[in-house]
Design a protein around this nucleic acid. Structure first.
Lengths: 213, 213
DNA sequence: TGATAATTTGACCGGTTGGTAAACATTACA
DNA sequence: TGTAATGTTTACCAACCGGTCAAATTATCA
């Protein structure tokens, strides 16, 4: 047999499982650092420690690799927003959403950059996901926020732009990491910037900048 | 003579002026959409309406084009932060900084994406600019903000993270434009999103989300 | 163990990419 | 106007890139 490539014997081999895993891990490393066009199969092969034809045995094309990677990562990526709970205390919910997003920026920066690269370059490969599942999820959560505002539980604000603001401020620490490091300099070298950011953002979103007593 | 390419006769020809302008405009279009590695000289040549060797007559390499473009754009890009005025009213200064940054996201999205692409991919070509001029400018303005906080004129917050928050929230509307459009959908199709964003962000930074009377 | 299926590799292919060489065309200017 | 400097183009090259192929190697299991 020459072209097993899954969906053949129905069952996936142990080797298939392992190798596809290794490839997607390498693909994440490379795609997140260089974007789709900027990445080469050879780079991914080198990171994965396999030969190029071997990669192409598991994923027929570069696009297929990218697609599989995105499918695998997108769900996880949206989890924090899904956890957003209509029943909870509004301010506490927003606060913990910020915290979760910031933790993801710290622990999964490559995933963040994968999407950032993609969206930045016009989202040619994930347009459907954006207009479909993503939009639906955001619409749903925006409705929750709007209800909170209407009930007077939080300030009356545009829920979509609130979500954008949380996304951008938190993902900034993953996507623009080199810039953040460069500006903070050696003196703030450690990982403490994530705690500083958490403190700052929680306060910003809850209290704003104005002084009051 | 075969290699005039500027710095020869000291004076730049009218043709040189015009063509370099056209090339950099085209380079901005292409680099901002695809990043450095993802862009090709042929693409830029086509957008500029010249032949590839003709481009290479004015800029010896792709890198030289990219460098010239960044040098030209960086100053303009940092102008809003430079205008940040220590003497003014703190809240008003922050508010107008947000407004200026948002106007830049609306009017110069390509410039924003150019830097976003670059930073996202590890800033291989602008590391020096980040650690040098950018850091210095931010350090200076952070000191201003810190003084305001110390004087009790604004809430006591980390000035660096405040600047990051303003950068990220405003640039988001340029860098992640497709995502913003996809999520907002057809109903918010016009350019009104920038005004909505301005309203939201000014209120967020000044008042936070909490309700008060 | 042996045969069959699954996996891996080296050699290769056509198209693209950054860049060059040299001939050709145009402009500036004495 | 003539000529030297400047600007433009065609043809080309070597390296790279996505992908194929057939042969070789390894795993599976009757």
């Amino acid at each position: 047999m020459v072209l097993p490539r899954a969906a053949k014997t129905q069952r996936r081999t142990r080797i298939q499982e392992e190798k596809e895993e290794r490839i997607l891990e390498a693909a994440l490393e490379v795609f997140s650092a260089s974007g789709f066009r900027g990445s080469t199969i050879d780079q991914i092969a080198e990171v994965a420690g396999m030969s190029k034809p071997n990669l192409l045995y598991y994923f027929r094309t570069k696009e297929a690799m990218h697609r599989a990677l995105i499918d695998r990562v997108l769900d996880t990526w949206l989890d924090p927003l899904r956890e957003f709970n209509a029943e909870g205390n509004p301010v506490a919910e927003i606060r913990s959403y910020i915290r979760r997003k910031l933790e993801m920026a710290r622990d999964f920066p490559r995933e963040s950059r994968l999407f950032a690269n993609e969206v930045l370059q016009g989202a040619p490969h994930i347009e459907d996901e954006l207009k479909g599942p993503l939009k639906q999820l955001v619409d749903e959560k925006a409705e929750v926020i709007r209800a909170w505002a209407k009930a007077g539980k939080i300030a009356n604000c545009d829920p979509y732009h609130l979500i954008f603001a949380i996304w951008s401020t938190t993902q900034h620490y993953a996507d623009f990491d080199v810039q953040v490091r460069a500006v903070l300099g050696q003196e703030h070298a450690g990982e403490g910037r994530f705690e500083d950011a958490a403190r700052f953002l929680e306060r910003l979103f809850v209290d704003g900048l104005q002084v009051r007593e």
